[in-house]
Nucleic acid binder design. Structure first.
Length: 286
DNA sequence: AAGAGGCCCTGATAGC
DNA sequence: TGCTATCAGGGCCTCT
């Protein structure tokens, strides 16, 4: 659920709040995230200064002194919260805006002078990892495909990549080795704007389709970032919504509703592609 | 090599 | 009311 735009929002908030600050202490309450948190995680981070925060794809990288990097991924259900030391919430860094810290699944706590950063993740698909050199960081991120915003994500790249590929275009948009940062929600939305059927084989896409994919990937993600990402699903203990892009969904979770395109009389259909729910207009996305 | 499918995990919800 | 089944899905793994 957190895709590139949501992760970008978290990154921006972190940048605002913890840049140039010193991590006083780290507490790990549950080491069993998607990857086991290494034994010396807390020791490595103690008293380190945060130089800057960057993001690549759906990963956030906290740059610390002495070429130490803390890289993390929110997985499916990970959220970051900024709380005062007295456990009173002052700001929210997650893309769900909550009034207080969730009761369960607060796995990691980073203590700064006047506030704590808490990582909450019910499903534990996210992870935190230490990377101890620039070289290793590069190695880790280099296996990912370009972001949609990259100049590498261009016509000839797509043209070459899709040659003889039998797989459908929707799965490619979600394939992080092809293009990184797009997940299920935005893959659906992007294909709607392109008027391309999600089941269409990549090799059968026309040149003009490739151009549309490049254009609309940038467009949809940029718009989502501008609106603060998407806040979806009914997390009932959480009130208020930070992101607003969910109000702009054209197809996602709009099963059986009318297509929003002018003069299109189609209905939004829901199907499964590789066990992921897929939404598209049965008329304009032929 | 490419692609399909399974698995990790918890919580919300549907159905009986 | 209380049980079970199903769905949600990002990334990594195995198998064909």
């Amino acid at each position: 659920m957190p895709e590139l735009p949501e992760v970008e929002i978290v990154k921006q908030s972190l940048d605002k709040n913890i840049k140039s600050k010193i991590i006083k202490k780290v507490i790990v309450r549950n080491r069993n995230l998607r990857k086991k948190i290494e034994k010396n995680f807390e020791i490595y981070l103690k008293n380190k200064k945060v130089i800057k925060i960057t993001r690549y794809s759906k990963y956030i990288i906290i740059h610390l002194t002495n070429s130490l990097f803390c890289i993390f991924h929110l997985g499916m259900s990970g959220t970051i919260h900024l709380v005062k030391n007295q456990k009173k919430k002052i700001t929210n860094l997650s893309f769900y805006k909550s009034l207080q810290l969730p009761k369960k699944h607060n796995h990691i706590e980073f203590r700064f002078d006047n506030f704590n950063i808490v990582y909450n993740d019910p499903r534990r698909f996210g992870f935190f990892e230490l990377i101890k050199s620039k070289k290793d960081l590069f190695k880790k991120l280099n296996i990912l495909g370009p972001e949609p915003f990259s100049s590498t994500f261009n016509f000839s790249y797509l043209k070459n990549f899709f040659k003889k590929k039998e797989k459908n275009i929707k799965n490619f948009l979600m394939d992080q080795n092809f293009v990184s940062g797009i997940g299920n929600i935005y893959a659906n939305e992007i294909l709607y704007f392109c008027k391309i059927n999600p089941n269409k084989k990549a090799k059968n896409l026309k040149n003009k389709d490739l151009k549309k994919i490049i254009y609309n990937s940038k467009l949809v993600l940029k718009q989502a970032i501008k609106l603060g990402g998407s806040s979806i699903r009914n997390f009932q203990n959480i009130s208020g919504i930070k992101g607003n892009f969910q109000n702009n969904f054209k197809v996602y979770q709009r099963e059986n509703l009318n297509c929003l395109r002018k003069n299109c009389h189609g209905k939004i259909q829901k199907i499964n592609i590789s066990k992921r729910s897929t939404f598209f207009c049965n008329n304009c996305q032929n």
